[in-house]
Simulated scan of single mutants.
Amino acid sequence: MRAQRASKPLTVRAAAKINLHLGVGRVREDGFHPLDTVYQAISLHDDLTLSETPEGDSLTVLGSPYVDLRDVPTDASNIALKALAEVSCGVGHDVAISKQIPVAGGMAGGSADAAAALLAHDRLHDLRQPDEVLLSQAARLGSDVPFSLVGGTARGRGRGEVVEPVEDHGGWWWVVVPAAVGLSTPDVYRHFDRLHPDAPETPASAEPLLAALATAEPVRLARVLHNDLQEPAIDLRPELGTLIERGEAEGALRGMVSGSGPTCVFLCDSHEGSMAVFAGLSATYDVVLPALGPVAGAHVVVS
């Protein structure tokens, strides 16, 4: 028998992700690409607050000033409401999302919201489902949603939804530069297919990246950061290449496109190094954000 429902709203925080390694194989017959990736959750996050209502589900979205909310749906097509529909327990919910994660930026902001909705629903109604049940629900919603539940640093395989946590003793300093205009993930994958019609079936292995992570040395990690979608993203948006060059000139150990882009991230050698890169890029770019990783996956915010 289900325990008594919580009577007050509940807030869950879910972090942005970056891909330290993103190996992409040839597109499969089902339209997905096989991946071997290493995710890391960083300290940009969305907060989702869930409460019961006698009416149907409703959604409001607010965001930090740099977050463009124009393309975030507030109807049933929003992935957070899709997540609630996936696990519906027959009551309505008010959903309020406060976003820090850039929209269409390659940082899995929508996936974070979906993961937050799944966990919030589970905890609000005191269901306490096993992790494997929540992860199965997450995988049905999207490739990045399971990682948004897990957080930390993790390896993803399949289409990215098969997630295995990775031991990571590093404290990694990042500088994040979102783009003013998003970039469609399907468009980037299609361009990857055009650029690499003979891509191997098996994606590039994440093993070198995992070995570097184990050392907790930023210089070693910088050498093996890898993203097969960076080339098509820069080909579609050449200014991303210019941004990466600028960030490395300002002192970053390595710059790269985050996931399918267009957000770019820069690995730095220390907090002081990240502040220098932050200051240098802020002279030209309107939005520059410092971040630390890894951080926790989706979790209840205790007020």
Results as ranks from 00 to 15, higher is better:
G105K: 04
L149T: 04
L135R: 15
A114I: 08
G156V: 06
D168W: 07
L118Q: 02
S111A: 14
R159I: 14
Q100C: 10
Q137R: 13
G152D: 02
E132K: 11
T153K: 09
P146E: 07
E167T: 15
A117V: 12
L134P: 04
P102E: 05
K99C: 06
G106V: 11
G160A: 07
L135Q: 15
P146C: 08
L118M: 07
L149M: 03
R128V: 05
Q100A: 12
R140Q: 02
V103W: 06
V133E: 11
L149H: 01
P130Q: 11
D113F: 03
S143P: 04
W173T: 03
V162W: 09
A117H: 11
A139P: 01
A154L: 09
L119Y: 13
I101H: 04
A114E: 05
A120T: 07
S143C: 07
V162N: 11
P130M: 10
Q137A: 07
P102T: 08
H121F: 07
P165G: 11
S136K: 02
P102M: 04
G170F: 05
G158T: 12
A114S: 14
G152Y: 04
G171H: 14
R155L: 03
A116W: 08
V163S: 03
W174F: 15
A112N: 12
G109M: 05
R155H: 06
S136D: 04
A104G: 13
D144K: 00
T153G: 08
G158K: 10
V145N: 01
M107G: 08
A116Q: 06
V162F: 07
R157A: 12
V150L: 04
V145H: 00
D131W: 10
Q129L: 15
E161K: 01
L127H: 10
V145Y: 01
L119V: 13
R157V: 15
A116H: 05
A117P: 13
A108I: 08
A115E: 11
V162H: 14
I101D: 10
D113L: 05
L135G: 10
R159S: 11
A138W: 02
A154N: 05
R157Q: 15
R123S: 10
R159K: 15
V166C: 12
H169C: 09
G170Q: 08
E164I: 10
D126E: 15
V162I: 15
L124V: 08
H169Y: 06
W174E: 03
D113M: 07
G170V: 13
S136C: 01
A139G: 00
S148N: 13
L118D: 03
V162G: 00
D131N: 12
A115D: 11
P146Y: 00
S111M: 05
S148H: 02
V163E: 06
R128L: 12
V150C: 04
